[in-house]
Amino acid sequence: MASKTIARPMSEQILVASVVILAIAWMVPLVWIVGLSFKNSLELVVDPNAVFRFPYTLENYADLMVTSNLGVWLRNTLIVTVTQTVLVVAISCLAGYGFARIDFPGRNLVFILVLMGLAIPQHAVIVPLHKMFNDWQMHNTFQALILPGLAGPFGVFLMTAYFRAIPLEIEEAAKLDNASRFRIFWEITLPLAVPAMATLAIFTFLHSWNDYLWPLISATRPEMYTLTVGLAATQTNIDQSEGLGYLMAQAVFAGLPMLILYIFFQKYVVRAVAGAAIR
C-alpha cells in the first residue's frame, strides 16, 4: 500500500524530469548557433570551442547587412507571403459562403470534388505545374510564385464549415429588407467569421513563408529568390566554408521574424497548425 502511494509521484517525477532534460537538448542547438553567429569565423576555424568564451562580436550581422542579398530575399518573401495570405483569405471566404449558403444546382457534387483536392500533394503536380509556367514564360515572376499557392482547398473547407455553423436566421431580417446577397455576406455574415479568418490567415502565412519546393523550382534568378531558397543557395558549401559564424547569423536573421510572431500569437499559431493537420 505504502509503496504504491510513493510509486505514483515517483513515476510522475521521472517522466517530468526526462521531458525537462529533453527540452534542454531541444534548446541546445538553437543556443549554440546563436552563439556561433556572434563569433568571428576565423576564430572558429582554429578552435570550434571558441564559441564558449569571449570575445563575441556583431561583425557577422554587420557583414550581413552589407554583403548579402538577404534584404532582397526578405522583400520577395514578404510580397509573396502577404499577397498569398490576403488572396487566400478573400477567395476562401467568398467560396466558403457560396458553398454554405447558395443552393446552386450541383453544389454538393462540386464541393465534394473540391474536398478531394485536399488529398493531392503538391509534389504530385510539381512537374506539370513547372511546364505550364514554362510554356507561359512566367518563371521568375511574382505571379508564378503566388498563383499556385491559391489553389489549395483547405481555406474553402475551413470557411465553408464555419459559415454553415452560423445560424441562417441571422440573415433572414436583412433578406426581408431586400439587401443584395453580397451585402448580407459583407455586412452581416463575414464579421462573424473573423476567428476562422484569423486561423486561415496565420496558417497560410506560415505555410507560404516556409514554402521551399515551388520557389526552388520556379525562381532560378537570385534576385527572385525567397528567403528559404536564398538561404538554401548559400549553405551548399557549409562543409568547406570558413564562414560558419556568418551562415549562422543568416539563419538567426531569417528565423527571428517567425519566432517573434510565434511568441506573440502562440495560441493562434498552434490552433492554425493543428487545425490544418486534422482538417
Partner: peptide, 10 residues
C-alpha cells in the same frame, strides 16, 4: 515555425 532551410542550416 522555422523553415526547412533554417532547420537544415542549424
Amino acid at each position: 515555425v522555422l523553415s526547412v532551410t533554417i532547420v537544415t542550416l542549424i
